[in-house]
Amino acid sequence: MVIKNLENKIKLVLIICSLFLVGCVVVSLGSIWTARTMVDDAHKKIYVLDGTVPILVNRSTMEETLDVEAKSHVEMFHHYFFTLAPDDKYIKYTMEKAMYLIDESGLAQYNALKEKGFYGNIMGSSAVFSIFCDSIRFNRDSLTFTYYGRQRIERRTSILMRELVTEGALKRVPRTENNPHGLLIVNWRTILNKDLDQRTKSNY
């Protein structure tokens, strides 16, 4: 009888220990899952300082902001590529910045213009080129775009306005300091580049 009672007590202790162990495992796993969820939520939140006051903002994914980032990337490239001044160092600087945003199709067009003496002509005529973006049509599914803009070319004696339309596609790449949007323009080409209006500058 004593042995039977002892066996029952041992079984009871084993059951209690097993339940305690299972409970510890459940609590541990629950704690790990809760902590991981909290860390993930914390990574999605960013604090921005407004003077000395921290303001909580939510970080969005690239999928949520793809349209905005794609259009910004395309506009940035065209700004660097088509904004020119009669300064060889400035031209070199803007072209280097532009080449970080595009594949070899941009470099090919730059080299073609350079071989034709286009940039040397800018220096010789003291021309100033400015670009104005009218609109950018972006297809989210195919990651293709069409850029519509106007270019203002100011020389000593005249001001010329040209219509510019280009097309290309976008490819995702890692974000870097020189490519903050994490996109690369590929297969870029000029569809239209024609004169709109030319007027003579008044000389006083």
Rank of each mutant, 00 (worst) to 15 (best):
M1E: 15
M1C: 09
K4T: 15
K9Q: 15
I10W: 13
K11Y: 15
V13H: 12
V13Y: 13
I16F: 13
S18T: 11
S18W: 07
V25I: 14
V26S: 12
S28H: 13
G30D: 12
A35M: 06
R36M: 06
M38L: 12
H43C: 07
I46F: 05
Y47Q: 04
Y47R: 05
V53P: 03
V53Q: 10
V53Y: 15
I55M: 11
L56D: 05
V57C: 08
N58A: 10
S60G: 09
T61Q: 06
M62G: 05
M62F: 15
T65M: 03
L66A: 03
D67I: 07
A70Y: 00
E75G: 04
M76W: 01
M76V: 14
M76R: 06
H78D: 03
F81A: 06
F81L: 08
T83E: 05
L84P: 00
A85K: 13
A85G: 05
D88S: 15
M95W: 10
A98D: 03
A98G: 08
M99K: 11
L107Y: 11
Q109C: 03
Y110K: 04
N111G: 03
N111Y: 05
A112R: 09
G117A: 08
Y119K: 01
N121K: 08
N121T: 15
N121C: 04
I122A: 03
I122Y: 02
M123N: 06
A127C: 09
A127E: 15
V128N: 07
F129L: 04
C133P: 07
C133Q: 09
D134P: 01
R140Q: 13
S142F: 11
L143G: 02
L143D: 01
T144N: 07
F145D: 00
Y148Q: 07
R152Q: 14
I153C: 04
I153L: 04
I153S: 03
R155N: 15
R155D: 07
I159E: 02
L160R: 09
E163G: 04
V165G: 00
G168F: 02
G168C: 03
K171L: 07
V173Q: 00
R175I: 13
R175Y: 05
R175A: 05
R175W: 07
E177W: 06
P180A: 01
H181G: 01
H181A: 06
V186Y: 12
W188L: 05
R189T: 10
Q198S: 14
R199A: 10
T200R: 10
K201P: 02
K201C: 06
N203G: 11
